[in-house]
Design a protein around this nucleic acid. Structure first.
Length: 517
RNA sequence: GAUUUCGUAGCUCAGCUGGUAGAGCAGUACACUUUUAAUGUACGGGCCCUGGGUUCGAAUCCCAGCGAAAUCACCA
């Protein structure tokens, strides 16, 4: 236990805590509080009535009294002697509450108002209120408090963010370091942050619903793997004591989902937290979420149509339209999206047709285009570099890039008409990859050969080549139906769907260096 | 990993070419029974990120470290 050095405000809050107890008020009561309303619902219910204010006021104040029980944090107070206004914030938002000394303290004892509310409560404290809905003279829907209960004392001062009537924000809690390290504070104080994360969940729910409606099965596969397969990346390594073996946190779940297709499921999907021990930046976090789905008897053409339908649905669920603002532009997720082959893309942005070039010619072309290459790079890698440097960033609106070099796609079926290519597509949005999909390679002999090719690349110096998973090959030898698989970077998609340009803004707890030295 | 920028009150920020710390909000006290960035008066609150150095004197200049952000590199 480290001794805490308390600042002035923290000391005062702790003193208030003690005083509450001395008054016989438990600041952390055990009993439930019977909440029956949310701030947002109350405001929405009467928003229409507000336009005919007189009618509403009459209804509420005379005829139909609407009793509500609310709980939340006290977020501001405007005390005017014997009456006060305050703002209560619950999970749905804020609503103004009105307290009158003689109404919450019916007898001679005015302590609950004078001492508890005015002195001992602070911004950030949880309180519960019982009262009725009314509209103030200036027309704000509020709750007239008749009973007030302390639910939980807050011992640290929250940042106070103010907004004027035009919606301008003052003194926003904006320090990224503090916001990410104390996301709980960020969420309390910054409404847009809460909105972003609500959208993230809605996005995943929509996706899940879409898959379930198609009859596909949500599954779970191992996070701890003895062979980190399905992608090429440096893994996190751990150790299992009882078995005395190294284990790796998964870098992908692809090979396990395919085993389940071998096992007879028609469609399986998983929201997979993956881990990669690599650099961190605005679009990379060491742990991140990928949704992978595999569907039997389909190919990558089917998967393109499936993908664009799903994204159209997601955009509509989140925004009510397929037009989604992002930075200076608007992304339109209405299906269908253009299909552009990788060769076409390169020709479009470099003017060079590389479709029949060999490795040496490609290397020359790359250098002519100002793309740095070295001798370890094979044909596939060279094409990938060229695409990455010259083309990728140009695809702002959702676009499928198809038919990648086979060397870069060791788990993907060869193209049905051109064995140098793979039946693969990536979905580009805003110049970035958000999805990757194949007609999955189900020929076990070809698959073994591809793994061996990966090993040769590794020997040649490519440190990203994949390792062989013999059990996976065994599974394929038992037979896997033709299958198409899709992986979607959930964090990135969320970024594009919520107009955020860093991954940290769509992860509740992005990786940070530990505090303190 | 490289470069640049930043680190001052609970929060948001000033603090010039070195002279010993400021504002707004928040807090405390008083007033105020329909306010809404409530208002009025008064008051308190700082290891100026850490450690060295230069100097009579460092929040300020120099070096190193720690942390963060941006750009680049890396990461299919």
């Amino acid at each position: 236990m480290s001794q805490q050095i308390l600042n002035e405000q923290e000391v005062i809050r702790r003193e208030s805590l003690t005083k509450l107890r001395e008054l016989g008020i438990e600041p952390y009561p055990a009993a439930l509080f019977p909440v029956d309303a949310l701030a947002k619902d109350i405001k929405q219910t009467y928003a229409d009535g507000l336009q005919q204010r007189d009618i509403l006021i009459n209804e509420l104040l005379e005829g139909k009294r609407v009793n509500v029980v609310l709980a939340g944090r006290l977020m501001s107070r405007r005390i005017m002697g014997k009456a006060s206004f305050a703002e209560l914030q619950d999970s749905s938002g804020r609503i103004q509450i009105y307290l009158n000394r003689d109404e919450i303290c019916l007898g001679e004892d005015k302590e609950l108002y004078n001492t508890v509310f005015k002195k001992l409560l602070d911004i950030g404290d949880f309180i519960g209120i019982k009262g009725y809905v009314f509209v103030t003279q200036v027309g704000e829907i509020s709750v007239h408090v008749e009973e007030m209960t302390v639910l939980a004392k807050s011992l640290r001062p929250l940042p106070v963010v103010k907004k004027d009537e035009d919606g301008n924000v003052y003194d926003a809690f904006a320090d990224t370091e503090l916001r990410y390290r104390m996301r709980y504070v960020d969420l309390v104080v910054n409404e847009q942050v809460r909105e972003t994360f609500l959208k993230r969940t809605k996005l995943m729910n929509t996706m899940r619903q879409f898959f379930n409606d198609h009859g596909y099965l949500e599954v779970e596969t191992p996070v701890l793997q003895s062979i980190p397969g399905g992608a090429a990346a440096r893994p996190f390594i751990t150790h299992h004591n009882a078995l005395d073996i190294p284990l790796y946190l998964r870098i992908a779940n692809e090979l396990y989902l395919k085993r389940l297709i071998v096992g007879g499921f028609d469609g399986v999907y998983e929201f997979s937290k993956n881990f990669r021990n690599e650099g961190m930046d605005r679009t990379h976090n060491p742990e991140f979420t990928v949704m992978e789905i595999y569907v039997a008897y389909k190919d990558y053409n089917w998967m393109m149509a499936f993908t664009e339908q799903m994204l159209e649905k997601i955009a509509t669920e989140l925004h009510g339209t397929t037009q989604v603002p992002f930075g200076d532009t608007t992304l339109n997720y209405a299906a269908p999206y253009p299909r552009v082959t990788m060769y076409e893309a390169i020709e479009r942005f470099t003017g060079v047709d590389i479709s029949s070039m060999d490795e040496a010619q490609l290397r020359v072309t790359c250098r002519q285009q100002g793309v740095e290459v070295d001798e370890t790079m094979g044909r596939g890698k060279l094409i990938d570099e060229l695409f990455g440097a010259k083309c990728e960033g140009n695809f702002i609106q959702p676009t499928f890039i198809t038919d990648f070099p086979v060397e870069m796609s060791p788990l993907c079926k060869k193209h049905r008409t051109n064995p140098q290519l793979a039946e693969r597509f990536e979905l580009m949005v805003n110049g970035k990859e958000v999805a990757n999909a194949y007609s999955e390679l189900n020929d076990p002999i070809d698959q073994r050969e591809r793994f061996l090719e990966q090993m040769r690349l590794a020997d040649r110096g490519d440190d990203e080549a994949m390792t062989i998973d013999h059990d996976f090959l065994r599974a394929l030898e038992y037979g896997m139906p033709p299958t198409s698989g899709l992986g979607i970077g959930i964090d990135r998609l969320t970024m594009f769907m919520t107009n955020q340009n860093t991954i940290q803004e769509v992860l509740f707890f992005p990786q940070m260096r530990p505090e303190k030295a």
